[in-house]
């Protein structure tokens, strides 16, 4: 499996993501500059945390126009896995690949702590190795992570099983304590917490490991299905 971590001007969790993913999957992980639009060689694309373009205008608002986002859209449309972490999540909502928006934390505080997350949707390409309702510990570090969407959209997300993670307690004022959401097909996930910061014992938690391993397991199943099936695409969304 081949992974791309997209590096924007102002990304600062890009190398963490590369190292974490390589360590827990043993796969090839390339750091790809955001000017690259051709992402076809990659099976999964990660938009890392940071402050792309200095958070100018709105978080993720400028990065959305980077050439790499064309590649990200194509990958998402092709059913490949796209993961947006923190600023990456903000870029995905700004680009319309995920619904909603991320606003300034309700308490006006930058929250930097280990958050407890409830795995709400354990049946997705990103969460299959977690137990239903399992509570995991993943660090958060953001000033603008308050998930917002109109009530109708929130209902749609909940009913469609597209809330992947929920904060066990309110940390930033997010609507319905939402920490991560999926697209309708289930192959694009955005979350504010940083799974790449929870992959070694010395980090205080290794609960992020299974997120990347879930993605890898999904890719393996897909590859097997693609080889064995003649007509079926082997693609699997939610549920």
């Amino acid at each position: 499996m081949k992974w791309a971590v997209i590096e924007f001007p102002g990304s600062n969790c890009d190398r963490d993501a590369v190292q974490a993913i390589a360590a827990v999957t043993g796969d090839v992980v390339d750091l790809v500059w955001h000017q690259e639009a051709a992402l076809d060689p990659y099976d999964a694309i990660v938009l890392p945390g940071g402050f792309s373009y200095g958070d100018y205008l709105r978080c993720g608002a400028i990065a959305r126009f980077s050439p790499a986002l064309a590649g990200v859209r194509a990958a998402a449309a092709a059913g490949k896995l796209v993961l947006g972490i923190c600023n990456g999540f903000q870029i995905l909502t700004e680009s319309g690949l995920l619904p909603g928006a991320l606003l300034r934390n309700r308490q006006l505080q930058f929250r930097c702590e280990v958050a407890e997350l409830e795995v709400v949707q354990p049946d997705s390409p990103f969460t299959a190795l977690y137990q239903p309702g399992e509570v995991i510990r993943i660090p958060i570090a953001h000033g603008e992570g308050r998930y917002y969407a109109p009530p109708a959209t929130l209902d749609e997300l909940e009913q469609g099983g597209r809330v992947a993670f929920r904060y066990a307690r309110d940390v930033n004022g997010s609507e319905r304590r939402i920490a991560g959401v999926l697209n309708p097909r289930g192959n694009v996930l955005g979350l504010m917490p940083h799974p790449e910061r929870a992959v070694f014992d010395w980090m205080g938690s290794i609960d992020g490991v299974r997120l990347f391993q879930s993605m890898r397991a999904f890719w393996q199943r897909q590859s097997v299905a693609a080889v064995s099936a003649s007509g079926g695409s082997g693609q699997r969304g939610l549920g």
Binding site: L57, R58, P99, G100, A101, L103, Y148, A149, P150
Partner: peptide, 8 residues
């Protein structure tokens, strides 16, 4: 398209 995010 850019200056305003109509979501919020």
């Amino acid at each position: 398209q850019v200056l305003c995010n109509p979501v919020m």
